[in-house]
C-alpha cells in the first residue's frame, strides 16, 4: 500500500515537472558574430521588456558569439539558432544552401535587404599615429606592421581584404596591380588570428603591430575600454560598406514554435528603439533619422562602396579570393 502511494506521488511530481516544462517561458537563441556582444546585451533587454508589455509573456533571449564562419558552420551542423545576426550574407546563403534551414530568398523578407545596420572598416593606430598612417597605401610601406585576421576564417577580415583590394584596383588600375598590393600588405602582417576579437587582443593587449584593421564598432569599443589617448581611429578616405544581415531560421522556429517571437525580435531592430541602440553601439543604422544626432556625429565621413558594386556577389568573391588556390592562397606561395 505504502509503495503504491509513493509511486503515485512520484508520478504526480513527474507530471508536475513535465507540465511545468511545457508552460515554461519561451527562449530565443540568437547566433551572432564576434563584435555584436555589447549591442545585443542591450537590445535583448529592450526587446524582452517590450514583449512583456505587449503580450505579458516573459521571454529569454540567449546569445552565441564567435567568428562568423564558425558560427554559420555550427548552425549547419545542428546548433538550433532561431535567429541569425551574422557578418556576411554569404554565411546565411550557405546555411540556406547546405542545410536548407531557410529559403534562398531570405534576404527579401525584411526591410532594406534584411540589413538593419551596417558597419565599415577603419584603422586603429597607436597614440599620435607615429607611422603616419592615413590611407590604404600607407599599409604596404616598409616597416609598417599590420594586424588583421585570416580572411579564410574571419568575416571581418574578408571585409579588410576586400576594402584594400578595391582601393588598389581603383588607384593602380587592374587586378594584377591589386594582387601585387595585397601581397605586399600581407607581407606586413606578422600574425594571422582566426577571428576579429583575437586580432584586437593581439594589437591592444600584446602590443603587436602599428595598425589594426578593425570593424568600426570594434575600434570605437577599444577606445572606450582602454580610455582615450592610447590608440586612435584613422578613417581612410574610402572603405567598404559591411552589410551585416539578419534572418529567421524557418526550420528551427517551426520546431520550437517561436516563429512570431523570432520575427518580432528581428523587426524590433528596425524600430526607433533598435536603430537608436545600433547607433549607440557604433553600428551605422539603416534609418539614421531614428538615432541620436550625437551618436551619428561620431561616425567619420568616408566614401563607402558595396560588395555588389565592386565585386558582383559574395559567391564570386569567395571563389576568386578565398577558396583554395584563390588569390589569398596565391599571395602566400613562396
Amino acid at each position: 500500500m505504502k509503495v503504491k502511494t509513493s509511486i503515485t506521488a512520484g508520478f504526480f511530481v513527474i507530471g508536475l515537472l513535465v507540465s511545468g516544462l511545457a508552460l515554461a517561458d519561451r527562449t530565443l537563441l540568437n547566433v551572432s558574430y564576434d563584435p555584436t556582444r555589447e549591442l545585443y546585451q542591450d537590445f535583448n533587454k529592450a526587446f524582452t521588456t517590450y514583449w512583456k508589455d505587449k503580450t505579458g509573456e516573459t521571454v529569454t533571449v540567449q546569445q552565441s558569439h564567435g567568428g562568423a564562419g564558425k558560427q554559420a558552420r555550427a548552425v549547419i551542423d545542428g546548433l538550433d539558432a532561431d535567429v541569425l545576426t551574422l557578418a556576411i550574407t554569404y554565411d546565411i546563403d550557405k546555411i540556406a544552401d547546405k542545410a536548407k534551414l531557410l529559403p534562398k530568398d531570405w534576404q527579401s523578407r525584411l526591410p532594406n535587404n534584411s540589413i538593419p545596420y551596417t558597419s565599415t572598416i577603419v584603422f586603429l593606430v597607436r597614440k599620435d599615429n607615429p607611422k603616419g598612417i592615413k590611407d590604404w597605401d600607407d599599409l604596404v610601406k616598409e616597416g609598417v606592421s599590420v594586424i588583421t585576421p585570416n580572411p579564410k576564417t574571419s568575416g571581418g577580415a574578408r571585409y579588410n581584404y576586400l576594402a584594400a583590394w578595391a582601393f588598389a584596383e581603383k588607384k593602380y588600375g587592374g587586378k594584377d596591380a591589386a594582387k601585387e598590393f595585397i601581397k605586399k600588405l600581407y607581407k606586413n602582417v606578422p600574425v594571422l588570428d582566426s577571428g576579429a576579437r583575437g586580432a584586437t587582443t593581439t594589437f591592444l593587449q600584446r602590443g603587436i603591430g602599428d595598425v589594426l584593421l578593425a570593424w568600426e564598432n570594434e575600434a570605437f569599443l577599444a577606445i572606450k575600454e582602454l580610455g582615450e589617448g592610447q590608440v586612435e581611429i584613422i578613417a581612410p578616405p574610402s572603405s567598404i560598406l559591411a552589410e551585416t544581415p539578419v534572418a529567421v531560421v524557418d526550420t528551427v522556429v517551426n520546431k520550437h514554435g517561436t516563429k512570431d517571437l523570432a520575427e518580432a525580435y528581428l523587426n524590433y531592430l528596425y524600430t526607433p528603439v533598435g536603430q537608436k541602440l545600433a547607433a549607440k553601439h557604433y553600428y551605422r543604422p539603416s534609418e539614421p533619422k531614428y538615432a541620436d544626432a550625437a551618436d551619428l556625429a561620431r561616425f567619420p565621413k568616408l566614401e563607402l562602396f558595396t560588395i555588389k558594386d565592386k565585386f558582383g556577389s559574395w559567391d564570386a568573391v569567395q571563389k576568386e579570393h578565398f577558396d583554395d588556390n584563390g588569390v589569398f592562397d596565391q599571395i602566400y606561395v613562396p
Binding site: 567568428g67 564562419g69 564558425k70 558552420r73 585570416n150 579564410k152 576564417t153 602582417v189 606578422p190 600574425v191 594571422l192 588570428d193 582566426s194 583554395d324 592562397d329 602566400y332 606561395v333 613562396p334
Partner: peptide, 18 residues
C-alpha cells in the same frame, strides 16, 4: 599562423571546415 611558416595541421583542418 602564417601560411607556409607557422600553420599547423589542425589549423589547416579548421580552415577547410570554415
Amino acid at each position: 599562423n602564417l601560411p607556409y611558416v607557422s600553420e599547423i595541421v589542425p589549423l589547416m583542418i579548421i580552415t577547410k571546415l570554415e
